[in-house]
Write a protein that binds this DNA or RNA. Structure first.
Lengths: 140, 140
DNA sequence: AATTCGCTTGACGTTGACGTAAGCTGCGAC
DNA sequence: GTCGCAGCTTACGTCAACGTCAAGCGAATT
Protein backbone atom coordinates (compact mmCIF):
# COMPACT_ATOMS: atom_id res chain seq x y z
CA UNK A 1 0.00 0.00 0.00
CA UNK A 2 1.14 3.53 0.65
CA UNK A 3 4.13 2.48 2.65
CA UNK A 4 5.87 5.75 1.92
CA UNK A 5 3.30 7.96 3.55
CA UNK A 6 4.60 10.10 6.34
CA UNK A 7 3.12 11.22 9.63
CA UNK A 8 3.66 13.90 12.19
CA UNK A 9 4.00 13.04 15.83
CA UNK A 10 0.58 14.50 16.53
CA UNK A 11 -1.13 12.35 13.96
CA UNK A 12 0.32 9.25 15.52
CA UNK A 13 -0.47 10.26 19.07
CA UNK A 14 -4.10 10.70 18.08
CA UNK A 15 -4.30 7.56 16.00
CA UNK A 16 -2.86 5.35 18.71
CA UNK A 17 -3.81 7.35 21.78
CA UNK A 18 -0.32 7.70 23.16
CA UNK A 19 1.49 10.84 24.24
CA UNK A 20 4.29 12.44 22.25
CA UNK A 21 6.50 11.82 25.22
CA UNK A 22 5.93 8.13 24.78
CA UNK A 23 6.91 8.14 21.12
CA UNK A 24 10.06 10.12 21.87
CA UNK A 25 10.83 7.72 24.66
CA UNK A 26 10.52 4.79 22.29
CA UNK A 27 12.90 6.55 19.96
CA UNK A 28 15.41 7.07 22.74
CA UNK A 29 15.14 3.38 23.43
CA UNK A 30 15.85 2.57 19.82
CA UNK A 31 12.47 1.05 19.06
CA UNK A 32 11.69 3.48 16.26
CA UNK A 33 13.87 5.80 14.20
CA UNK A 34 11.89 8.56 12.49
CA UNK A 35 13.70 10.88 10.13
CA UNK A 36 13.99 14.61 10.64
CA UNK A 37 12.93 17.55 8.63
CA UNK A 38 15.11 20.09 10.30
CA UNK A 39 14.51 19.34 13.91
CA UNK A 40 11.03 17.92 13.57
CA UNK A 41 10.39 14.20 13.58
CA UNK A 42 8.84 12.77 10.49
CA UNK A 43 7.52 9.22 10.80
CA UNK A 44 7.33 6.79 7.90
CA UNK A 45 5.19 3.74 7.26
CA UNK A 46 7.85 1.54 8.74
CA UNK A 47 7.80 3.52 11.98
CA UNK A 48 4.07 3.31 12.09
CA UNK A 49 4.11 -0.44 11.63
CA UNK A 50 6.60 -0.74 14.44
CA UNK A 51 4.46 1.36 16.73
CA UNK A 52 1.57 -0.99 16.10
CA UNK A 53 3.74 -3.92 17.10
CA UNK A 54 5.04 -2.10 20.16
CA UNK A 55 1.58 -1.25 21.43
CA UNK A 56 0.24 -4.70 20.83
CA UNK A 57 3.24 -6.12 22.61
CA UNK A 58 2.55 -3.81 25.52
CA UNK A 59 -1.07 -4.90 25.72
CA UNK A 60 -0.13 -8.54 25.96
CA UNK A 61 2.31 -7.77 28.74
CA UNK A 62 5.69 -7.71 27.06
CA UNK A 63 8.33 -5.40 28.48
CA UNK A 64 9.91 -2.87 26.16
CA UNK A 65 13.16 -4.80 26.15
CA UNK A 66 11.32 -7.92 25.04
CA UNK A 67 9.61 -5.89 22.37
CA UNK A 68 12.91 -4.46 21.28
CA UNK A 69 14.25 -7.96 20.94
CA UNK A 70 11.40 -8.99 18.70
CA UNK A 71 11.71 -5.91 16.53
CA UNK A 72 15.42 -6.52 16.19
CA UNK A 73 14.68 -10.07 15.14
CA UNK A 74 12.40 -8.92 12.36
CA UNK A 75 15.21 -6.67 11.19
CA UNK A 76 18.17 -8.97 11.41
CA UNK A 77 16.81 -12.28 10.26
CA UNK A 78 16.62 -10.80 6.76
CA UNK A 79 20.00 -9.20 6.35
CA UNK A 80 21.89 -11.05 9.07
CA UNK A 81 24.10 -14.07 8.63
CA UNK A 82 23.21 -17.70 9.14
CA UNK A 83 23.81 -17.71 12.86
CA UNK A 84 21.67 -14.61 13.25
CA UNK A 85 18.82 -16.18 11.37
CA UNK A 86 18.83 -19.38 13.37
CA UNK A 87 19.08 -17.47 16.59
CA UNK A 88 16.11 -15.43 15.50
CA UNK A 89 14.13 -18.58 14.86
CA UNK A 90 14.82 -19.78 18.37
CA UNK A 91 13.76 -16.50 19.88
CA UNK A 92 10.59 -16.42 17.85
CA UNK A 93 9.69 -19.85 19.16
CA UNK A 94 10.29 -18.72 22.71
CA UNK A 95 7.90 -15.83 22.26
CA UNK A 96 5.46 -18.23 20.66
CA UNK A 97 5.46 -20.48 23.70
CA UNK A 98 5.15 -17.60 26.08
CA UNK A 99 2.12 -16.31 24.23
CA UNK A 100 0.52 -19.72 24.11
CA UNK A 101 0.94 -19.97 27.84
CA UNK A 102 -0.70 -16.61 28.22
CA UNK A 103 -3.54 -17.65 26.00
CA UNK A 104 -4.25 -20.56 28.31
CA UNK A 105 -4.17 -18.23 31.30
CA UNK A 106 -6.61 -15.92 29.62
CA UNK A 107 -8.97 -18.69 28.68
CA UNK A 108 -8.99 -19.97 32.24
CA UNK A 109 -9.67 -16.49 33.50
CA UNK A 110 -12.48 -16.09 31.01
CA UNK A 111 -14.10 -19.27 32.22
CA UNK A 112 -13.95 -18.13 35.81
CA UNK A 113 -15.31 -14.71 35.02
CA UNK A 114 -18.20 -16.15 33.07
CA UNK A 115 -18.96 -18.52 35.90
CA UNK A 116 -18.96 -15.66 38.37
CA UNK A 117 -21.34 -13.69 36.20
CA UNK A 118 -23.81 -16.51 35.73
CA UNK A 119 -23.67 -17.18 39.45
CA UNK A 120 -24.79 -13.64 40.03
CA UNK A 121 -27.43 -13.87 37.34
CA UNK A 122 -28.81 -17.06 38.84
CA UNK A 123 -29.17 -15.34 42.16
CA UNK A 124 -31.03 -12.56 40.45
CA UNK A 125 -33.31 -14.99 38.63
CA UNK A 126 -34.17 -16.72 41.87
CA UNK A 127 -35.59 -13.46 43.08
CA UNK A 128 -33.05 -12.83 45.73
CA UNK A 129 -32.79 -9.34 44.32
CA UNK A 130 -35.79 -7.08 44.09
CA UNK A 131 -36.66 -5.62 40.74
CA UNK A 132 -36.55 -2.16 42.23
CA UNK A 133 -32.89 -2.61 42.84
CA UNK A 134 -32.38 -3.79 39.29
CA UNK A 135 -34.13 -0.80 37.86
CA UNK A 136 -32.16 1.54 40.02
CA UNK A 137 -28.96 -0.04 38.81
CA UNK A 138 -29.95 0.05 35.18
CA UNK A 139 -30.68 3.76 35.45
CA UNK A 140 -27.27 4.80 36.73
CA UNK B 1 -11.45 -31.16 48.85
CA UNK B 2 -8.89 -30.49 51.51
CA UNK B 3 -9.57 -26.83 51.64
CA UNK B 4 -8.40 -26.67 55.22
CA UNK B 5 -4.86 -27.75 54.55
CA UNK B 6 -2.24 -25.26 55.63
CA UNK B 7 1.06 -24.23 54.12
CA UNK B 8 4.22 -22.53 55.24
CA UNK B 9 5.60 -19.63 53.33
CA UNK B 10 8.44 -21.76 52.05
CA UNK B 11 6.14 -24.38 50.62
CA UNK B 12 4.30 -21.75 48.65
CA UNK B 13 7.42 -20.01 47.42
CA UNK B 14 8.62 -23.31 46.01
CA UNK B 15 5.30 -24.37 44.58
CA UNK B 16 4.74 -21.10 42.77
CA UNK B 17 8.32 -19.97 42.30
CA UNK B 18 7.95 -16.63 44.03
CA UNK B 19 10.04 -15.14 46.82
CA UNK B 20 8.86 -14.86 50.40
CA UNK B 21 9.25 -11.12 50.01
CA UNK B 22 6.64 -11.21 47.29
CA UNK B 23 4.11 -13.07 49.42
CA UNK B 24 4.63 -10.71 52.33
CA UNK B 25 4.26 -7.81 49.96
CA UNK B 26 0.96 -9.18 48.73
CA UNK B 27 -0.13 -9.43 52.33
CA UNK B 28 0.82 -5.81 53.00
CA UNK B 29 -1.24 -4.90 49.98
CA UNK B 30 -4.20 -6.78 51.36
CA UNK B 31 -4.33 -9.41 48.64
CA UNK B 32 -3.93 -12.31 51.04
CA UNK B 33 -4.39 -12.62 54.77
CA UNK B 34 -2.68 -15.65 56.24
CA UNK B 35 -3.18 -16.41 59.90
CA UNK B 36 -0.41 -16.48 62.44
CA UNK B 37 0.92 -19.11 64.72
CA UNK B 38 2.78 -16.81 67.04
CA UNK B 39 4.63 -14.63 64.62
CA UNK B 40 4.82 -17.09 61.77
CA UNK B 41 2.48 -16.90 58.79
CA UNK B 42 0.32 -19.88 58.21
CA UNK B 43 -1.43 -19.98 54.86
CA UNK B 44 -4.75 -21.73 54.28
CA UNK B 45 -6.37 -23.14 51.16
CA UNK B 46 -8.13 -19.87 50.60
CA UNK B 47 -4.85 -17.99 50.58
CA UNK B 48 -3.38 -20.51 48.19
CA UNK B 49 -6.31 -20.13 45.82
CA UNK B 50 -5.89 -16.40 45.91
CA UNK B 51 -2.21 -16.66 45.13
CA UNK B 52 -3.04 -18.71 42.08
CA UNK B 53 -5.40 -16.00 40.92
CA UNK B 54 -2.86 -13.28 41.64
CA UNK B 55 -0.10 -14.96 39.67
CA UNK B 56 -2.35 -15.72 36.76
CA UNK B 57 -3.53 -12.13 36.78
CA UNK B 58 0.06 -11.01 36.75
CA UNK B 59 0.91 -13.20 33.79
CA UNK B 60 -1.89 -11.76 31.72
CA UNK B 61 -0.73 -8.25 32.53
CA UNK B 62 -3.05 -7.06 35.28
CA UNK B 63 -1.67 -4.63 37.83
CA UNK B 64 -1.89 -5.57 41.47
CA UNK B 65 -4.60 -3.00 42.06
CA UNK B 66 -6.68 -4.51 39.27
CA UNK B 67 -6.10 -7.91 40.78
CA UNK B 68 -7.12 -6.61 44.17
CA UNK B 69 -10.31 -5.32 42.66
CA UNK B 70 -11.16 -8.70 41.22
CA UNK B 71 -10.38 -10.49 44.45
CA UNK B 72 -12.53 -8.03 46.35
CA UNK B 73 -15.34 -8.71 43.92
CA UNK B 74 -15.18 -12.43 44.56
CA UNK B 75 -15.43 -11.65 48.25
CA UNK B 76 -18.14 -9.07 48.31
CA UNK B 77 -20.61 -10.32 45.75
CA UNK B 78 -21.42 -13.12 48.19
CA UNK B 79 -21.91 -11.28 51.43
CA UNK B 80 -22.48 -7.77 50.11
CA UNK B 81 -25.77 -6.05 49.55
CA UNK B 82 -27.71 -5.75 46.33
CA UNK B 83 -25.88 -2.71 45.07
CA UNK B 84 -22.56 -4.38 45.78
CA UNK B 85 -23.56 -7.46 43.84
CA UNK B 86 -24.72 -5.57 40.79
CA UNK B 87 -21.65 -3.43 40.86
CA UNK B 88 -19.59 -6.58 40.98
CA UNK B 89 -21.39 -7.93 37.94
CA UNK B 90 -20.51 -4.85 35.99
CA UNK B 91 -16.89 -5.02 36.97
CA UNK B 92 -16.71 -8.68 36.06
CA UNK B 93 -18.00 -7.87 32.62
CA UNK B 94 -15.42 -5.16 32.20
CA UNK B 95 -12.65 -7.58 32.99
CA UNK B 96 -14.24 -10.03 30.61
CA UNK B 97 -14.10 -7.58 27.74
CA UNK B 98 -10.57 -6.55 28.52
CA UNK B 99 -9.45 -10.15 28.44
CA UNK B 100 -11.26 -10.84 25.20
CA UNK B 101 -9.48 -7.93 23.59
CA UNK B 102 -6.22 -9.28 24.85
CA UNK B 103 -7.02 -12.68 23.46
CA UNK B 104 -7.43 -11.14 20.03
CA UNK B 105 -4.11 -9.36 20.41
CA UNK B 106 -2.44 -12.59 21.35
CA UNK B 107 -3.93 -14.49 18.47
CA UNK B 108 -2.74 -11.86 16.03
CA UNK B 109 0.71 -11.99 17.52
CA UNK B 110 0.70 -15.76 17.29
CA UNK B 111 -0.14 -15.60 13.63
CA UNK B 112 2.68 -13.19 12.94
CA UNK B 113 5.18 -15.21 14.89
CA UNK B 114 4.24 -18.39 13.08
CA UNK B 115 4.52 -16.63 9.77
CA UNK B 116 7.96 -15.36 10.68
CA UNK B 117 9.07 -18.84 11.64
CA UNK B 118 7.83 -20.49 8.47
CA UNK B 119 9.48 -17.74 6.45
CA UNK B 120 12.75 -18.69 8.04
CA UNK B 121 12.10 -22.38 7.55
CA UNK B 122 11.32 -21.85 3.89
CA UNK B 123 14.62 -20.07 3.44
CA UNK B 124 16.33 -23.02 5.07
CA UNK B 125 14.49 -25.51 2.87
CA UNK B 126 15.54 -23.68 -0.25
CA UNK B 127 19.12 -24.36 0.69
CA UNK B 128 20.07 -20.83 1.44
CA UNK B 129 21.63 -22.14 4.60
CA UNK B 130 24.36 -24.75 4.59
CA UNK B 131 23.82 -27.90 6.53
CA UNK B 132 27.04 -27.29 8.42
CA UNK B 133 25.49 -24.21 9.93
CA UNK B 134 22.39 -26.14 10.89
CA UNK B 135 24.42 -28.79 12.65
CA UNK B 136 26.41 -26.22 14.48
CA UNK B 137 23.23 -24.61 15.68
CA UNK B 138 21.63 -27.86 16.76
CA UNK B 139 24.67 -28.70 18.86
CA UNK B 140 24.67 -25.60 21.03
C1' DA C 1 7.17 42.98 15.93
C1' DA C 2 4.96 40.11 19.02
C1' DT C 3 2.28 36.32 20.02
C1' DT C 4 0.87 31.79 19.47
C1' DC C 5 1.42 27.02 18.23
C1' DG C 6 3.65 22.88 17.64
C1' DC C 7 7.70 20.66 18.23
C1' DT C 8 12.14 20.05 20.34
C1' DT C 9 15.67 18.72 24.09
C1' DG C 10 17.22 18.03 28.74
C1' DA C 11 16.47 16.79 33.39
C1' DC C 12 14.18 15.60 37.46
C1' DG C 13 9.78 13.29 39.48
C1' DT C 14 6.66 9.40 40.02
C1' DT C 15 4.51 4.90 40.45
C1' DG C 16 4.41 -0.07 40.78
C1' DA C 17 6.44 -4.19 42.14
C1' DC C 18 9.28 -5.88 44.29
C1' DG C 19 14.95 -6.60 45.93
C1' DT C 20 18.08 -6.25 49.55
C1' DA C 21 20.38 -5.59 53.78
C1' DA C 22 20.17 -5.16 58.96
C1' DG C 23 18.81 -6.82 63.02
C1' DC C 24 15.46 -9.47 65.88
C1' DT C 25 12.94 -13.98 67.45
C1' DG C 26 11.98 -18.54 68.32
C1' DC C 27 13.25 -23.65 67.87
C1' DG C 28 15.07 -28.08 66.98
C1' DA C 29 19.86 -30.27 66.60
C1' DC C 30 24.19 -31.00 68.51
C1' DG D 1 23.96 -23.43 75.84
C1' DT D 2 24.76 -22.22 71.27
C1' DC D 3 24.61 -22.97 66.46
C1' DG D 4 22.24 -22.56 62.50
C1' DC D 5 18.06 -22.13 60.20
C1' DA D 6 13.54 -20.20 59.05
C1' DG D 7 10.81 -16.60 59.65
C1' DC D 8 9.80 -11.79 61.04
C1' DT D 9 9.91 -6.41 60.65
C1' DT D 10 11.68 -2.02 59.13
C1' DA D 11 13.42 0.60 55.82
C1' DC D 12 15.94 2.07 52.05
C1' DG D 13 17.17 0.81 47.02
C1' DT D 14 16.04 -0.25 42.22
C1' DC D 15 14.20 -0.63 37.61
C1' DA D 16 10.88 0.22 34.02
C1' DA D 17 7.93 3.32 31.77
C1' DC D 18 6.74 7.05 31.30
C1' DG D 19 4.93 12.15 33.45
C1' DT D 20 6.07 16.75 34.18
C1' DC D 21 8.14 20.90 34.08
C1' DA D 22 11.56 24.35 32.00
C1' DA D 23 13.51 26.59 28.29
C1' DG D 24 14.16 27.12 23.50
C1' DC D 25 13.37 27.12 18.20
C1' DG D 26 10.81 27.98 13.67
C1' DA D 27 6.86 29.01 11.08
C1' DA D 28 2.54 31.23 10.83
C1' DT D 29 -0.91 34.35 12.37
C1' DT D 30 -2.37 38.94 14.15
Amino acid sequence: MNMNRTFTIRQLTKEFDVTARTLRFYEDEGLIAPERRGQTRIYGGRDRARIILILRGRRVGFSLSEIREILDLYDTHHDGGVAQTLHARKKFEEQLHKLERQKVDIEESLIELKRAITTIDDAVAKGRLQSSALVQHAAE
